[in-house]
Each structure stands twice: as structure tokens, then as C-alpha cells.
């Protein structure tokens, strides 16, 4: 491997020593990432061992959360996490795909860069600032206009019944939607850019309109990458903490109404961890963290595999 072909034996040896040292140092830093992951899993497991021993897998299906009695079940948290994230995707996916498609296929060249830059700035806004805005601007607005409207028009559905508090599941879903949109947009944009131009040109040459070229030739090619982008957004939504805990109402309950307050796994950890005194309470929260971690790892691994597949198939690079 050593490329030094010139110089005396002494410098050659020096170069080889330097190369070995260089590689050893880099190897140590590269090892840090997998070692950290292993350590993280171990610590989370060690932290939740007590709760795992006490409640087992029943923890995930029980709805009881009583720190005083020392009884814990994470079902309302899991429910809140899944429902808020799913709703957020329902809102964010059409929007972000629309933006990504518009920016790669139809927008005038001049505005493509600036607009995607603006939307990526949304991803740079700290979560706690979204929360602040959610509490003082978004929720008062929703409570005054959108929520009463939904209740009046769709009130026959169980999702839109009951009192309107303001903070609740739907508020959390809307703020989550704003937050995950830039991720889904930017990854699906990369995926669409990786679709070869010949795909578009072939369809247009056959007389397809631009919309037909998109749905017939571009989207099928990019499909698994776009699914990957959506799953990546899901991973973000599931783990989002601060903004959610500030607008979801924080109650360990399962309610059919989207106006009712709820709770998510991440929000419960954020709120209760620093204040928990009993070991079993801490351990239960750690168990929640472990569950959240396992779920997000699986989701991210799936998303990465899908995106990599398109990137390889298309010969281009993606996130």
C-alpha cells in the first residue's frame, strides 16, 4: 500500500511508520461511532433493567402511570407518539412532495435554489422555538378559528368531538408537520435529482404532458427513495421532543378526540426525568427511552436502505 517509491530506506521506513500511525489514529476515531452506539444501547438497557424485570413486555400494553404507587405502563405514550406522527405525516407528505416535485421538475431555474434554501432553514430552527411559537401564536389561532370550524363541519366524527382545550393531539401534529416537512422535502428532492433525464425526455417525446411524464416515468423510478424520505421524516417525528411537549397537553391518556391532550414517549421523558425521585420511575422512563430508540433505529435503517437502493440504481448520490 505504501506509495513512497523514492528516497532512502530511512525515509521510506519513516513514511511507513507515519502511514501506520495515521491509519491507527483514524481507525480509533472511526471506531468511536460504533463503540458509542454499543455503549448507548448498553447504558439504556442497564438503566431500564429494573423496569423490564418488574413489568416485562406488559409495560408496552398497560395504560397505568402512577409514580406514587410505582406502577407504570407506556401504552398512552406509544399511542400519542404514533398518532401525532402519523397525523403529521398525513399533512406533511403531500406538501413536501409537492414542493420537491415542483422544485426539481417545474419551477423556473432561478427560484429553485433560493426556495429550497428557505425551506431548509425551517430545519435549522430549534425545536424549542417551534414550541414557543406553538404556545403563543399557533394554538390561540387554531383555537379561535380552525378547531371550531372542524368541530362544526366534521363534529359527527369521534375525532372532532369534545371540548377544545388548545394544547392537544392535533396541535402537536400540526407543529410536527411543519418540522418534518423540510427533511422529507430535501431528501425526496435529492432522490428526484438522481432520476436520469432520459426518463423524462422519453416520456415527453412520446407526447406525454409534463404531469404525465412525472407520474408515468419519474415517480415510478424514484418510488422507493421517496418512501425512504417519508420514513426518515417519520423517524424525526417520533423522536421530536420539545415542541411536542410544549403543545400536546402532557396527559397520560388515550382519547379518541384529536382536541384532547395526549402525551408522547419523548415528551414524557423530557418532563418527568429530571423530577423523578424513585428508582423505578427513572427506570420506567429509561425503558420508554429504550423503546423509542429501538423503534427509531429500525425506522431509520429501513429508510436508509431504501434511499441507498435508488441512489445505486440511479447512479447518483443521495443523502
Amino acid at each position: 500500500m505504501s506509495p513512497s517509491a523514492t528516497g532512502s530506506d530511512a525515509t521510506l521506513g519513516g513514511a511507513r511508520f507515519g502511514d501506520r500511525l495515521f491509519k491507527a489514529a483514524l481507525t480509533l476515531t472511526a471506531l468511536a461511532v460504533p463503540v458509542l452506539l454499543g455503549f448507548l444501547v448498553f447504558e439504556l438497557w442497564a438503566g431500564s433493567r429494573e423496569a423490564i424485570g418488574e413489568f416485562g413486555l406488559g409495560f408496552l400494553t398497560s395504560s397505568e402511570w402512577d409514580p406514587v404507587e410505582g406502577r407504570f405502563g407506556a401504552l398512552p405514550l406509544i399511542f400519542g407518539t404514533v398518532v401525532s406522527s402519523a397525523l403529521a405525516l398525513l399533512i406533511a407528505v403531500p406538501l413536501s412532495l409537492g414542493v420537491a416535485i415542483f422544485l426539481t421538475e417545474f419551477a423556473p431555474m432561478r427560484i429553485r435554489g433560493p426556495v429550497s434554501f428557505l425551506i431548509e432553514l425551517l430545519a435549522a430552527i430549534p425545536s424549542v422555538v417551534y414550541g414557543l411559537w406553538g404556545i403563543f401564536v399557533m394554538i390561540p389561532f387554531l383555537r379561535a378559528t380552525v378547531f371550531p370550524f372542524l368541530k362544526d363541519t366534521l363534529g359527527f366524527l369521534p375525532f372532532f368531538q369534545g371540548p377544545i382545550y388548545g394544547p392537544g393531539m392535533l396541535s402537536a401534529a400540526i407543529i410536527l408537520a411543519i418540522m418534518v416537512m423540510p427533511y422529507i422535502m430535501s431528501v425526496s428532492r435529492e432522490v428526484l435529482l438522481a432520476v436520469p433525464n432520459t426518463q423524462r425526455e422519453a416520456a415527453l417525446a412520446l407526447g406525454a404532458t409534463r404531469w404525465e411524464a412525472l407520474t408515468g416515468a419519474v415517480l415510478p423510478y424514484a418510488r422507493s427513495g421517496i418512501i425512504g424520505a417519508v420514513i426518515l421524516g417519520l423517524g424525526r417525528a417520533l423522536g421530536e421532543t420539545m415542541a411536542v411537549t410544549m403543545v400536546i397537553g402532557n396527559r397520560h391518556e388515550i382519547a379518541a378526540s384529536l382536541f384532547a391532550p395526549g402525551y408522547t414517549m419523548a415528551a414524557a421523558i423530557a418532563n418527568e426525568f429530571a423530577e423523578a425521585v424513585e428508582n423505578i420511575h427513572l427506570s420506567a422512563l429509561s425503558y420508554v427511552a429504550l423503546t423509542l430508540f429501538v423503534v427509531t433505529v429500525l425506522i431509520n435503517a429501513a429508510a436508509r436502505l431504501l434511499i441507498w437502493r435508488v441512489a445505486q440504481g440511479g447512479g447518483g448520490k443521495s443523502a
Partner: peptide
Amino acid sequence: VSDVLNGTPSIVVGVF
């Protein structure tokens, strides 16, 4: 592993 850790919720890292 970097890609996976990149998607790990920051609250989980806090617990760690």
C-alpha cells in the same frame, strides 16, 4: 451507524 445515530432522538442521547 452514523446514519442511524443521526436519526436517534436527542432526548434518548440525553438519557444516555
